[in-house]
């Protein structure tokens, strides 16, 4: 630890990188307990928010998958086993395409 007064003497790079030195003008009026609790709470909120967003994205993905599955089921239930594609192609069950 440096024995010099940080308010009057500029610490060397080595001094400043191995210890905490008060920044000029800074004031310490906040309780350490409040800072500690706030830091831990905020970090966990960040994690849980990310997990919640992940879960929401998963639900959205499930809904989209459901739409595709419903479309495939309708296709299977359609008489003639297929629908006309935009290029005039005929779609067969199982995803194979015959170009007309």
């Amino acid at each position: 630890m440096s024995q010099t007064d940080p308010a009057t003497t500029q610490p060397t790079i080595q001094d400043r990188s191995t210890e905490f030195v008060p920044v000029e003008g800074g004031r310490d009026t906040t309780s350490a307990e409040a800072l500690l609790v706030t830091a831990y709470a905020a970090m966990w909120i960040a994690v849980f928010l990310f997990v919640w967003l992940t879960s929401r994205r998963q639900r959205n993905l499930d809904a989209r998958l459901g739409e595709v599955e419903a479309a495939l089921q309708r296709l299977e239930a359609t008489p003639g086993d297929g629908r006309a594609g935009p290029a005039g192609g005929e779609v067969q069950r199982g995803g194979e395409v015959e170009h007309g």
Binding site: F20, G26, D28, A39, A42
Partner: peptide, 13 residues
Amino acid sequence: ISGPLWAKKAWGV
């Protein structure tokens, strides 16, 4: 988030 909260006590800002 955590760094500045710690710095407030250790550095004063």
